[in-house]
Design a protein around this nucleic acid. Structure first.
Lengths: 248, 248
DNA sequence: GCCGGCCTCACCCGCCGGGGTGACACCCCC
DNA sequence: GGGGGTGTCACCCCGGCGGGTGAGGCCGGC
């Protein structure tokens, strides 16, 4: 019951049309929801399912398999580690990523030894999660299983746990890895000014006043930049600007 | 006349309330407009003025001074370099950044020798420009002049011109340098799903259908996430999500 | 020299977005 | 055990968004 509620809350009905399916296991609801909330923002992730009960995790694995399975470990109870080991024994082909506490290198090392593909700090940013997930379980096409073989992500627990965050080194690499689309668009100065205004929550009239232009003129620029960026919305246009590296 | 048109097009009326004023000089209109279009997207830049004529550049400098002056150089005619030298002789306190071609290390070296604070490739991304501009001409307060002294940015032209882009090494550092606000907000899973949908140009009804929820429910989540992010708009909310590193 | 892109402005229109408010239920933390 | 955050849904309201279209002028490139 509780489990169904959580599933419903995280799952919704996003029938991933391309993009991988990620399962998150952790017995602590806070943790798995927190991690899930960051995962749903990733463009490469189409479907996120949160599981809090070892039994139902194994039951699901019997019929379906995720592209990546994140397993949270906690030092206090060894349950997370036990679950990971159990899963890997039953389904060695499932790409398991261990979610470790920032200072818990041991459990992580143990899990990697047991067959996990890598680890992530549970406080990793979406970008870092994206890197980890895409390295471990990228799917080229919806029907195909994860493209393998992939080199282990979790090789050097020691130094990674010393830094601020595991896998934090190369965000630009992530961009390159995740990016798929973007056929190089250039916006004019005016269009950039309008887009910037939009990203600051300004109305067309407000942008017009600040640029000493008519609101209708702003609308025209907006329409044009929507076309260029392939956006139907100012929200999508702003997102597109950020994804293309035009904004910061 | 031509000059006035360009100025008006770039300038608008953004009376920078905090944030630096940047001038862009280049005789090639394409270049200066292109650079300007990337500068206007920077949160740390409040005002951009594009100048295409050496004479009017010097005339302006007599009365006002920018926080940063970008000077474009071209190998063919040495005009850009000459202008930079001239400006620096007349106004040594003006922070000059040289805009060099990707493969033109010589002019850059010469300009730095003449007193320029650093260089940027003219094809630098907004993020890289932000780094360069903020290092050279950050203003703490509207009234105060640029905070100095600042270490030269352009020390190693050689190896920088070897890489893909000058100053491209540490985008995360830029974040840290530019970021000012952001008092740590956490969105719930649902809120993240809604925000993600918004960033994909989906309507509330559409998001609702995909999550098997009522449109009114989506609106409620939207309202709540707007409050959390301090956004008045879905566009601003999306931008905020990106700026806070919640989205990618 | 013409064509194309950009800038500017205008008018019409339909619909969605966002605010306000109320309600009920669950969950977690204090 | 109660309060705060979250999830879900509903109704009302209206202002702004986005689409379509037309039109004049300037600039740069083929």
């Amino acid at each position: 019951m509780i489990e169904d509620r959580t599933r419903a809350a995280v799952n919704g009905g996003a029938h991933g049309v391309g993009g991988s399916t990620v399962w998150v296991f952790d017995e602590r609801r806070r943790v798995r929801d927190d991690v899930a909330s960051r995962l749903v923002a990733l463009p490469s992730v189409a479907r996120v399912e949160a599981v809090g009960d070892p039994a139902s995790l194994l039951a699901r694995l019997a019929t379906r398999q995720p592209d990546v399975l994140l397993v949270g470990t906690q030092r206090a109870t060894d349950s997370g580690l036990a679950v990971a080991t159990q899963v890997l024994r039953a389904h060695p082909s499932v790409p398991v990523l261990v979610l470790g506490a920032p200072d818990d290198a041991e459990s992580v090392r143990a899990a990697v030894a047991a067959g996990a593909r890598g680890y992530l700090r549970w406080d990793a940013s979406p970008v870092e999660m994206g890197l980890g997930v895409s390295r471990v379980g990228l799917r080229a096409e919806p029907g195909r299983p994860h493209t393998g073989p992939l080199s282990a992500v979790g090789a050097p627990p020691a130094h990674a746990f010393g830094g601020s965050t595991a896998l934090a080194a190369a965000p630009t690499t992530v961009r390159a890895a995740v990016r798929v689309d973007v056929p190089a668009v250039t916006l004019s100065v005016r269009e950039m000014q309008v887009l910037t205004g939009m990203s600051q929550g300004k109305s067309n009239a407000q942008i017009g006043r600040e640029l000493y232009l008519s609101e209708d003129t702003i609308k025209t620029h907006a329409r044009r930049l929507f076309r260029k960026l392939g956006a139907k919305d100012r929200a999508e246009a702003v997102a597109s600007g950020f994804r293309r590296g035009m904004m910061s």
